[in-house]
Design a binder for these strands. Structure first.
Lengths: 189, 189
DNA sequence: ATCATTTCTTAAACTACATTAAGTTTTTTC
DNA sequence: GAAAAAACTTAATGTAGTTTAAGAAATGAT
């Protein structure tokens, strides 16, 4: 159980079998069906989720009722609504499976305890959060840098396999425009 | 020296005088004049910066030659171009003082060593990065949620003092529109 | 296999915001 | 404190992307 996560941890910190034994009881494997939810608006985010297999997205519903995708995650990435998770406040977000997905959950009520028992995870999560922060800086720059059409072509060029994995309307909302406009762009060439 | 930073660390982790003595040699206080740069495009980002007093912004220059502000930081926040800082690659960003600013720098070539000598800082920086990640999630949601005018009114309502601290053209680029449009909004009411 | 649902496309009318360019006000510098 | 530079305003014109609405295609359920 949890071998994917251990493999991942090993890439970042010194990690042995004894550590594994301590961590295991904190890990809870879960399956989510395509379109299933790990979190819905108004709920309190219970866990931090590690994707073993599949694809999740974090989105919210804007004033006009449209879904806006903040983030996609695939294998070996973590996802949560940090504010809701850490402070156990009602979330404004949904976390939904874009395809059938297996995750490992670490629940809030044992999060602090986990760090107490395994302080070396402080370093692992610092490094993970650094990667997240890099991704956010890149993403914000990306959103500001180009026109909608350029963003689509650029993204399509960088991640052609990923574009095939998710419905176009999700991609459109991630790239910051409407599905109709995406159709228009695609028709052009 | 560095008392502001020690005060800040104490809010997050258990911290004593002995720790302070170990950390001090890694800290380098710097002053930056208004409009001065801690980082320019094409350079390698040397340090992670903690703002003691003042205000910095992270921006880049887009294809059309316009400045786009990614992030503002004020007292008690950290800022760096993480990708350039960690991997010592050329940066695509500028870090500029929006007003006369005092910072404490921790340089890249001693960053790993610092964590070795003071492993408890892993936790401090994990918590800081969590806050950053929360801020990024909020920011991306904010950019998607509202029209340009709503974003301005909202931001102005939430941070009225801050709006006074920076030139309008910086604020406009942070909020994702042109200075001309900001003038138009302000004239309206 | 068939029906229902979800996703994608097309096209016309519309609008929020950008661009350009000139003038005004504020801030900085010596 | 005068001159230069930087920041802000105004207004006309332009356009990238939205909205609406209806039909076509793909996917899923039984």
């Amino acid at each position: 159980m949890g071998s994917a996560i251990f493999q991942h941890i090993k890439k970042f910190i010194d990690w042995g079998v004894d550590d594994q034994e301590i961590l295991t009881p904190f890990l809870q494997p879960l399956s989510v069906k395509k379109k299933g939810f790990l979190l819905e608006q108004g709920q309190i985010c219970r866990a931090n989720y590690f994707v073993v297999k599949g694809c999740l997205r974090l989105y919210f519903i804007d004033i006009k009722g449209a879904e806006q995708t903040i983030q996609f995650v695939i294998e070996n990435w973590w996802i949560t609504d940090l504010t809701s998770f850490l402070f156990q406040e009602q979330s404004e977000f949904y976390i939904q499976a874009a395809e059938a997905t297996e995750v490992i959950a670490i629940e809030n009520h044992r999060y602090d305890e986990m760090f107490q028992k395994l302080p070396k995870l402080e370093r692992y999560f610092r490094l993970i959060l650094q990667k997240n922060h890099q991704a956010s800086q890149r993403r914000i720059k990306f959103l500001y840098s180009q026109t909608a059409e350029e963003r689509y072509r650029n993204f399509n060029h960088l991640f052609p396999e990923f574009v095939q994995r998710v419905p176009q309307y999700m991609l459109a909302s991630y790239l910051g425009f409407t599905p109709e406009f995406l159709s228009k762009i695609r028709a052009k060439k």
